[in-house]
């Protein structure tokens, strides 16, 4: 569980995060939604300590993350970035194996357990057959799955994904969110996703955090977020919320700018 209290961060006197507080539960998918510039990515990067100049506190199962070394932090939190780093000369297996770094000592080679973890991660992400391929030769969807396999191989209780499906078609996007849900349910991991896809967030999340101007705007279940007036207040645009025959909720921006 992650507890964030009064998190604040600013760039050149411009506040990006303003005394943000929230709790991210274990074994669940939590999604952060908000307009551009609301501070979503900054929040994710603060938890990862890619941004380190914030005030307030972030604790991980009771431990202040500032007291952890880089290696210890990497044993707790893994990251699927928006842009997957390309390597012209690294195979998918080599790329995923690098995520065992936090668990290895300097000259220690990969053990058979490390190799099993890598293979299992590739299998879970559905890309075991691609392990010999060069990362740069993968399609966008396959590359995103390689990044998720890498995060899984890091064996952390928390995985943070920053707009993981922004470049994916509906099929790969569904596959990715479904995988995130499976990971949280079967492996009891926390998955924190930053996204603009409200329908996917409502469908696959256990809880949703709405962020506006660096502050917590609303925190609740997907059903409570699928509320057109709440979303209108957040984005300044009207929304239609529909439910299909199977009970799936779909959220569409209506296009009418609110007064």
């Amino acid at each position: 569980m992650i507890e964030i209290k009064n998190l604040a961060w600013q760039i050149n006197d411009k506040p990006i995060l303003r005394r943000f507080s929230a709790t991210i539960p274990s074994g669940a998918v939590t999604t952060i939604i908000g307009p551009n510039g609301a501070g979503k990515t900054s929040l994710a990067r603060s938890i990862l300590r890619l941004i380190d100049e914030w005030t307030g506190s972030i604790s991980l199962d009771g431990t202040d993350i500032r007291t952890l070394t880089s290696q210890e932090l990497a044993r707790h939190i893994s990251y699927v970035p928006q842009d997957i780093p390309l390597s012209q000369s690294m195979s998918v297996e080599e790329f995923v194996s690098l995520s065992r770094y936090p668990w290895l000592n300097n000259w220690q080679p990969l053990s058979s357990r490390d190799r099993d973890v890598v293979n299992n991660s590739l299998e879970k992400a559905g890309i075991l057959a691609l392990k010999e391929r060069v990362v740069a030769s993968l399609s966008g969807g396959e590359r995103q799955m390689a990044a998720i396999a890498a995060a899984l191989a890091q064996e952390t209780p928390l995985i943070i994904m920053d707009e993981p499906a922004s470049n994916l078609d509906p099929f790969h996007s569904h596959q990715l969110y479904q995988l995130a849900k499976d990971i949280s349910q079967h492996d009891n991991k926390s998955v924190l996703i930053v996204t603009h896809d409200i329908t996917a967030a409502v469908r696959y999340s256990d809880s949703i955090i709405l962020l506006k101007e660096g502050k917590l705007f609303f925190e609740g279940t997907p059903q409570s977020v699928a509320n057109s007036s709440l979303l209108e207040q957040l984005f300044g645009i009207s929304f239609s919320v529909l439910t299909d025959d199977s009970g799936n909720i779909m959220v569409f921006p209506g296009g009418k700018k609110s007064e």
Binding site: L48, R49, L50, T69, S70, Q71, E72, L73, A74, R75, I77, S78, Y79, P81, P85, S87, M90, F95, L98, S99, Y101, P102, L104, Q154
Partner: peptide, 19 residues
């Protein structure tokens, strides 16, 4: 190993535990 990770970007290396 650190160089392998660094060659994929400093954010990536940091998230894998490289100082």
């Amino acid at each position: 190993r650190e160089l392998d990770l660094l060659s994929l970007g400093s954010d990536f290396a940091h998230s894998r535990g490289v100082a």
